[in-house]
């Protein structure tokens, strides 16, 4: 028994070292991918689960960052490479307004209320963006974004989501037995930040995913 404990104690630092190397290797691959993106001049997004933040970047400089309230990773580790957003899925996609052309000949009173100063502006704004949606990357990686509101309804929603999460964990495990396993990220942001992410992360945009640390 004492020998076994001694062996475990001896092996612990070795495994910690291996984890650190793995983290450094992932960082190395991500930095290499980021260097290419930064050189291209494109805007890109870094989902940094290790530091619980989403960074909007261009040419290596962070232009904006959104703090993650919660970030979880399910399934296999996402590839440490440049990803492209293939699809955004939501139950309430924002719709663009079609401008109505006034008929001057008929002296119509129909005018654009685009600049009428009230809150019912005819425009697509951040508040029109959804707070809960799914982002599907080109390799099948799914990013589920949820916004954490406040108040009674939000609290009920959180409880419901917690139950749903627990139930779906089992079904997800069973489902992955019969399908190609894909990484899945569950991100919780504030409502404004979730909408900002939807606004800025357009389809065909690039992103990188930095997974949580493998070492404690």
């Amino acid at each position: 028994m004492h020998r076994l404990i001694l062996l475990i104690l001896l092996l612990l630092p070795l495994s910690a070292g291996a984890d650190e190397t793995a983290d450094l290797l992932i960082d190395n691959q991500l930095l290499t991918a980021e260097l290419q993106l930064a050189r291209s001049g494109k805007l890109y997004i870094l989902f940094d689960l290790r530091e619980s933040v989403i960074r909007f970047k261009a040419s290596g400089v962070t232009i904006s960052s959104l703090p993650l309230q919660a970030g979880k990773l399910y399934g296999p580790m996402p590839a440490a490479k440049n990803h492209t957003l293939a699809q955004r899925k939501t139950s309430s996609p924002p719709r663009r307004e079609q401008l109505i052309i006034p008929d001057k000949a008929a002296n119509s009173e129909v005018t654009s209320d685009q600049e009428n100063g009230d809150d019912t502006l005819q425009a697509l704004e951040r508040d029109d963006m959804p707070g809960n949606y799914r982002l599907i990357l080109e390799d099948g990686t799914r990013i589920n974004v949820r916004s954490d509101g406040s108040g009674f309804v939000a609290a009920i929603g959180r409880i419901g989501r917690g139950i749903g999460d627990t139930a779906s964990r089992g079904s997800r495990a069973v489902w992955q037995l019969f399908s190609t396993p894909a990484s899945e990220l569950q991100l919780t942001l504030s409502l404004n930040d979730a909408r900002q992410l939807y606004w800025s992360f357009a389809e065909q945009a690039d992103c990188l995913i930095r997974p949580p640390a493998t070492s404690p």
Binding site: K72, Y74, P76, A80
Partner: peptide
Amino acid sequence: FLLRTPNSSQPVPT
């Protein structure tokens, strides 16, 4: 289920 929970040590592909 513990192994499927988030932030677990997954084998690094590389």
